[in-house]
Amino acid sequence: MKELKENIIQRIKASFADAKERNDFSDNRVDFHVKKETIPSILFYLKEEMGFIHLSHISCVDWLEEGEFELVFIVWSPVDKVKVFVRTRVDRENPVMDNIDMIWRQANTYEREFREMFGIQFTGLVAPDEFILEDWQGPPPFRRDFDTAEYAEKTFWNRPGREDAQDVRETISGRDGEEIPDFAKKYSR
């Protein structure tokens, strides 16, 4: 298993100069970071040359503090039983990414989701504008700077009395003389 992993790492590194390996202790997992321009070619290479024929997942992480979105493509080889994570970063202000649905058609669904939920544009993506949300008027809701509570209060009325529920735990602990540590107070509603 170890040699297999080493072998895969060496092959990817030999073909893609910008592929930076990230430490992963699991024997059947390989983790790479590449520039976003490399994504279509590295995924195509993995699929056609190295037998990673299955696209398990694409996920998106919002690194708000760093001003970037991270896209993680997870591919799987049923022969080697190895997973490869290919990560890339996209600028948050102007998130544009290459479309990869000609490599795996199912990527289309993920890309529609990211377009709707994170506002990432995929060049050349052919799909209807709406995915899950209908008549959505706000900003992309999965971005971390989108305040859902505030939006919900503005859009859907809150019934008065809801505020009471916020310090249930404090009320109970006050009655029983229970100590709540400071770090937990934040979550006590």
Binding site: L133, W136, G138, P141, F146, T148, A149, Y151, A152, E153, F156, W157, N158, R159, R162
Partner: peptide, 10 residues
């Protein structure tokens, strides 16, 4: 779900 962005409250 009171603070969910897509569910009604009342």
């Amino acid at each position: 779900y009171y603070d969910s962005y897509n569910t009604i409250n009342v």
